[in-house]
Design a protein around this nucleic acid. Structure first.
Lengths: 206, 206, 206, 206
DNA sequence: CCCTAAACGAGACGGTACGTCCGGTCTTAAT
DNA sequence: ATTAAGACCGGACGTACCGTCTCGTTTAGGG
């Protein structure tokens, strides 16, 4: 390839990729205040206007970068039992979020979304999809009859993700594997207390 | 003699008050991006240097303002039962956090603490003290023998505050009274399942 | 290929003009301490950064403004005699410098050039060109054989401009037309004493 | 009224001395922009208010410091001839002004006097006294009958000091001994052309 | 010999301007 | 028509001084 003095029309996709990659890389770096459009553009080898042409604001770029990076880990989970699904999902999610660059990324993204409406909307959308995954897991348990009646599933879901974000944002406590397993069991106690008779294994619904 | 304890003009307490009040007022207003030191100084009728003289960064001012404002609502809770204490604490906390200006304040403070190390430290300190309140409630329940064994109290506590912050930061779901009560019950199910036999009333320990 | 001559938006000439005009206007106003970059930018309707982009310091702007304003009055002088040239040049120069806004401008420019290296260099350059005008006048007299031998022309020139600046900066004495004529005659007495036999008319060299 | 001549602590002469010394030292140092009251006070080991109590502005302090430092060199000159007096006075004056710290001091003082009214007035007063010295020299020559008629002495005096300041402020040419002697002779040519028949020695008035 | 008012070192105060950085928009030449 | 480069306006940043205003201490007279 090589040279390409500097300009040209047909760059579109490469530029888009470069921008998102640069944004994600910078998001994963330490300082959330050093996140300027200029820096992203420079790292991507792109004009600043090219960013503003496609995204409404800085936050929107960052969110899209984050979504792309985090969106890949969506592997369907179905162990056949609620506790199994929860353990799988939560340990995987906690492990991902406790990776240092990813944690920085999450913090930066939240910081951005609190300042920028576009980013806020995008983060809301992103988190909604994550909650859907958990809701589906709980839905399958319900179909199997595992769930007690009258459980507020939204409350359960927000406890899980709330704990994840709370610890990530504040950093007072790590997102350990142990806490993921503990959380899984705690949630089951709330929604399907009977299924924990033999811990780790669901009781047959009988 | 050793030394003069102090020389020079004393710190102006009125200025300090004016700064914190102005900071809290601006925190409660809508736009978290309009939170500039210049604006705080102007609203407080104070030179900008007077702020930088006493606080290491903008975030430190905001956090101190928030702590002052939020710190007053600490009323001791002791209903005699775990579920009662939790219901009291959580409904009060949720109600406070769902007040629109306070919610904006919390979001602004979190945004600031994600960018500024001083603010981060201060928010960590602030939230730690809030967790202590909840931990004390749980501790009293333990002394009464209400708690099941081997419960990870930190996990429980972080579920509660996590949910609070998660909903406040994202705004996808309100912090209703109903959810506070639901959360209280959910937490009790995790730590003291037996005590919910007759809902809202603890069973006699016997 | 070598290189692209230039990329990006071209420099806005209107902004440059507005900045220099604003600077010159402010220079001509009373207070030399009220000369801030902020004020210049505001009066020019320009961002502050646009000034810093093109000039290394405030003084450099002011000097360029002064040079532009003062540079226009360069009309060639050649009356055929030394005394005639000097009278023309000095009366014109003194008259210009005794104009109140111009005098303020000169004082401000000197003040700036004493604080700012860039401005100092520019003022040095500016004054050198003014001295050249006088030197040329004297040079023509020399070609005509009017000058006595062994005269230190630099000394003569600096007496003239020295007097001009000295009175302008201190303001103890006005730059009157009478003093311009007196100075012209005094200088001729130094360098070509014979040519004043009949005042105002050079004697034939013979 | 005249009641109570004075009460309270007397003015500290040591502080006054320290302030003027510090000011003069800083004036003689390179950077004229680094001349802050804070720095003077710190170097003098004095509170800032002690300066403002006794002088109306920074410039007034600097000027007084300069006057004190420069005022000592006033030794009466009387060689008996105009050219002799001028040579003595101008070589001494030029030598003093070409000393690097003194030249910096003069530049700083002029810079200050262009910004500060008090300093301006003080510098005007200072220079007036220096002109008086030269005027006295010329006055004695007049009494001896050396001077031609109709000479504008103010013009002559301002040529001399003008040249001194012009070269000091711009720095394009040094104040050499040679130029002092040349200037002495040039001035004599203006005011007493006959007295230079035998250079360096006045002709007997006959 | 004490009293008292002023001067002192220190330093906080409300301001103003500095020079830098970034956000989001507009313009240019090149392809 | 889109790109990379980059100038543009606006506005906040954190710093440096300005000149004023307390602080608590020190000290030179007058009583």
């Amino acid at each position: 390839l090589a040279d390409r003095a500097h300009t040209g029309r047909a760059r579109n996709k490469a530029a888009r990729r470069a921008i998102l990659t640069a944004a994600a890389d910078l998001l994963g770096q330490c300082d959330p205040a050093a996140l300027s459009v200029e820096r992203i553009a420079a790292m991507a080898g792109v004009g600043r206007q090219t960013i503003y042409r496609w995204w409404p604001s800085k936050g929107a770029v960052l969110l899209e970068a984050m979504v792309e990076r985090a969106g890949s880990e969506l592997s369907p989970i179905d162990s056949g039992t609620l506790i199994g699904d929860l353990e799988l999902f939560l340990t995987a999610t906690f492990r991902a979020a406790s990776d240092a660059p990813t944690a920085r990324l999450l913090r930066s993204v939240m910081a951005e979304s609190l300042r920028d409406l576009h980013a806020g909307e995008a983060l809301r959308e992103f988190t909604a999809r994550r909650r859907d995954v958990l809701r589906e897991i709980l839905g399958r348990a319900e179909e199997r009859g595992e769930l007690a009646r009258g459980v507020d599933l939204d409350l359960v879901i927000d406890q899980a993700f709330g704990l994840l974000w709370y610890r990530t944002l504040l950093g007072h406590e790590p997102l350990s594997r142990k806490s993921a397993l503990g959380l899984a069991r705690a949630l089951v106690r709330q929604v399907a207390p009977g299924s924990l008779a033999r811990p780790g294994r669901p009781e047959p619904p009988l």
